[in-house]
Computed example of a mutant assay.
Amino acid sequence: MRPLDALHASSKRIATLAVVGEGPTPRTPATQTDLNRMRASYSSWTTSALDPAFMNIGGLFDPDSAPVTIFIDTRTMEIVAVKAGIDLTTAQVDEIVSGITSGPPLY
C-alpha cells in the first residue's frame, strides 16, 4: 500500500505533511507540477510541501529510499520511527501511532 493511502486509512489521529522531493523519474527534482499532481489526489486531508531533490529534509534519510514516512511525537518533536519504501500498511501505521500515544513523552 502506498504510504499516504496507509496513513489516510488509519483510524488514529494523525497530522500529515507530504513532502514532494522527486518528480516522476527517480533522482529528478520535483517541480510545482509534481506537487500539484500530488495535491490533486491528497489535498483534502494532508498538508503538502515542495522540496526539490530533498534539499532541505534529505539529511533525515537516504533520498534513494523515497518514499519515506517519518513518525514524530509532536509532544517532543522527536523522530520515533522511519519507514522507507512504498510498502507501508495501515496496521503498521496504527501500531506506531499507538506506541507514541499510549505512553508519556520520551524526553
Rank of each mutant, 00 (worst) to 15 (best):
V19N: 02
L106T: 13
S48T: 14
P24C: 03
V19W: 00
R2P: 02
R2K: 13
A15W: 04
A9W: 04
E95Y: 12
A9E: 07
T25A: 06
G59T: 10
S102V: 10
I70C: 07
I86L: 14
R2G: 05
F61C: 10
T25M: 05
A18F: 01
M38P: 00
H8R: 15
P24D: 04
A9P: 00
F71A: 09
A15N: 11
V19G: 02
L106W: 10
A40I: 02
A9R: 12
G58M: 09
I72K: 11
K83G: 04
E22D: 11
A84K: 15
R75Q: 08
P29Y: 02
A91Y: 06
T16A: 08
T74M: 11
A49R: 11
G58C: 07
T16Q: 07
G21A: 09
R13Y: 01
A81H: 14
V93Y: 03
D51F: 14
L7N: 04
A40R: 10
L17P: 01
A91C: 05
S48V: 08
T69K: 11
P26E: 03
T74Y: 04
T31N: 02
M38I: 13
M38T: 08
D64T: 10
P26G: 06
G99H: 12
P63Y: 05
F61A: 08
R13S: 07
I72N: 09
A15H: 12
P63Q: 08
I96H: 05
G103N: 12
A40H: 09
T16K: 12
T90V: 13
A91Q: 15
E22G: 03
I70L: 13
I57E: 01
T90D: 00
S98F: 01
M1V: 13
I100N: 07
T69N: 08
S48A: 14
T76R: 10
G21H: 06
P29G: 01
R13I: 03
